Computed example of a mutant assay.
Amino acid sequence: MPSSTVAPDAGRIGEGRTAAPIARRRRRLLLGFAGAALLLVVLSVLSLMVGARTIAPADVLHALTHYSRSDPNALVVVDSRLPRTLLGIAAGLGLGLAGTVMQGLSRNPLADPGILGVNFGASLAVVVAIAFLGVTAPSGYIWFAFAGAALASALVYAVSSLGREGATPVKLALAGAAVSAALGSLITAVELTSRVSLDAMRFWQVGSLAGRGFGVLLQVLPTLALGAVIALALGRLLNGLALGDDVARGLGQRVGVSRGLSGVAVVLLCGSATAAVGPIAFAGLIVPHIARRVVGADYRWILAYSALLAPSLLLGCDIIGRVVAPPGELQVGVVLAFVGAPVFIALVRRRRTVAL
């Protein structure tokens, strides 16, 4: 009789002690997520304000709510900076989620869009379109870039799937490096035979948010949104893959399906972002590490944080590029390389870097 009265109380005490840390952790993660969202909002407003001509917040709001072609502030804010800001948010979200999925898929902390040949595939398709088809506008070659990214990623995955083990992380990385090297050689060969393609590719390959209008954003938005939905739904699957294929299978997970869905998400996200703004490095590489240090090893939270931190990083670097070299500006790909390289080196050198 005493045991029947004491045991329930002991169980409730144990449950309370277990639930309290979980509740505190969830509250902390939600507060951090809200802070990341606030940071993105602040940087978005700064992106509309800062440039060769600084515009006050009140004037930005007036330009957005009372657009008029006779108002010079409205022309700058709505016609130039607004599509640039929205494209930065969209491309950053795509690169951040894609980098997170790629690192979880390959269990490789150095995974980025280059591991599946996305950048080189998109670049080759663009240079071919420019050199042989006469396509020079971003709105014209964007679909070539997307198709090239998708085909290169499919080729890498097909090559790495050969053999009994399937697409293991090591085979995926090796196949990606081999395909990227081959495509890079083809890009150089085409550029050396076409001066027009060389001039056009210089501005696309550096990675830039400038000069892209609403048309480019609308073209990539459907595939980018679909890729983001798939990626955000992969949290539990990536948690299983992080334990190893054998353990994931033992837990009832269909590893082949998980890898296939991850590959589709990567192609959609990387292909869309790369086609729109060019091959921007480091955004998909360092952001998952930053998110992982904040939230731990749970990919559900890593994906959510990366979806906010990567656009913030991209917009922040774009804003810096506008003000460091007046009256001109540095493209976001150049600034991100300067900012991202030291940050990533510091991350990988720290002893407490969270393992995948």
Score class of each variant (00 low, 15 high):
212 R>L: 05
229 V>S: 02
139 S>V: 14
213 G>Y: 06
236 R>H: 04
146 F>Q: 04
239 N>S: 05
262 S>H: 08
227 G>N: 00
201 M>R: 02
203 F>Y: 12
196 V>I: 15
143 W>T: 14
266 V>G: 00
131 A>P: 03
183 L>P: 04
257 V>K: 00
229 V>C: 01
228 A>M: 01
262 S>C: 10
235 G>E: 04
218 L>Q: 09
244 G>Y: 15
140 G>Y: 06
237 L>E: 12
212 R>P: 01
237 L>T: 10
143 W>D: 11
190 V>A: 12
220 V>E: 04
237 L>G: 02
241 L>E: 04
199 D>V: 08
223 T>D: 03
158 A>F: 13
258 S>E: 01
211 G>K: 05
147 A>W: 06
133 L>A: 14
170 V>Y: 02
184 G>Q: 08
147 A>L: 12
260 G>I: 00
195 R>H: 12
211 G>A: 09
134 G>E: 07
260 G>N: 00
206 V>I: 05
249 R>K: 09
148 G>C: 10
244 G>W: 15
199 D>T: 03
179 V>R: 01
197 S>R: 14
211 G>E: 06
188 T>D: 07
207 G>M: 09
261 L>M: 05
258 S>Y: 05
179 V>S: 02
208 S>W: 14
248 A>S: 09
164 R>K: 13
196 V>D: 15
166 G>N: 03
251 L>R: 10
154 A>K: 09
245 D>Q: 04
135 V>K: 12
264 V>P: 12
160 S>M: 10
174 L>M: 14
158 A>W: 12
132 F>G: 02
136 T>W: 15
265 A>M: 10
131 A>R: 13
253 Q>G: 09
162 L>M: 11
192 L>V: 12
163 G>A: 03
155 L>N: 04
165 E>M: 14
197 S>I: 15
238 L>C: 12
175 A>G: 01
145 A>L: 08
246 D>V: 10
191 E>C: 13
200 A>G: 08
224 L>T: 01
198 L>W: 15
241 L>G: 03
246 D>G: 10
237 L>N: 09
176 G>Q: 08
139 S>A: 12
247 V>H: 07
146 F>D: 02
214 F>E: 03
183 L>H: 07
213 G>L: 03
207 G>E: 10
179 V>Q: 00
134 G>P: 06
230 I>G: 06
237 L>V: 03
262 S>P: 00
199 D>C: 14
217 L>N: 08
174 L>G: 04
166 G>P: 07
265 A>P: 11
187 I>G: 06
199 D>H: 13
178 A>D: 09
140 G>T: 04
249 R>H: 05
228 A>K: 00
170 V>Q: 05
160 S>R: 06
229 V>L: 12
165 E>L: 15
145 A>N: 11
265 A>D: 14
264 V>D: 03
214 F>T: 06
159 V>P: 06
202 R>F: 14
235 G>N: 02
158 A>I: 11
157 Y>T: 07
205 Q>N: 11
230 I>S: 07
211 G>L: 04
251 L>M: 07
267 V>G: 02
184 G>D: 13
167 A>W: 03
255 V>Y: 01
256 G>A: 15
184 G>T: 12
239 N>K: 05
221 L>K: 03
170 V>G: 00
245 D>R: 03
175 A>Q: 00
133 L>V: 11
213 G>A: 05
256 G>P: 13
183 L>W: 06
222 P>C: 01
172 L>R: 08
190 V>K: 13
178 A>E: 08
203 F>S: 11
